[in-house]
């Protein structure tokens, strides 16, 4: 019987507004994360970007890989040619608790 994959969600905020619902921005971030993590760790982390607002997005990762994802986000300083900083605000097991932390 296959085990259910357990995830963790990271709330990330960018220093400049960037629309993470655009496919090109998501692909750029995924490429940067792949470069930072390497193929093996990236495959294990299985990151998925969930847009939240102009300055924020939620990153879903495999449980026990949050630290790898947080480190990768620390090293990324550019998305789609735009220079920015990415800050990890909070990690949680559910999206609901992160949505309460979004900037209103």
């Amino acid at each position: 019987m296959a085990k259910r994959i357990k995830n963790r969600y990271l709330l990330a905020q960018t220093s400049v507004p960037i629309d993470m619902s655009l496919i090109e921005n998501q692909k750029s971030l995924e490429e940067k994360m792949l470069k930072a993590l390497g193929t093996a760790t990236y495959s294990y982390t299985m990151p998925k970007i969930i847009p939240a607002s102009q300055n924020e997005f939620i990153l879903r990762v495999h449980r026990n890989t949050e630290e790898h994802a947080i480190l990768a986000l620390s090293f990324i300083k550019e998305i789609s040619g735009k220079r920015l900083g990415i800050y990890t605000i909070k990690t949680s097991g559910t999206i609901k608790s992160l949505r309460e932390k979004l900037i209103k």
Binding site: S15, E67, L73, K77, Y87
Partner: peptide
């Protein structure tokens, strides 16, 4: 030097451990 190179407390903790 700029906001681009700031880290959150959670990131700085992870970096410290790394």
């Amino acid at each position: 030097e700029s906001e681009e190179y700031l880290l959150s407390a959670r990131q700085l903790m992870t970096m410290a451990k790394f």
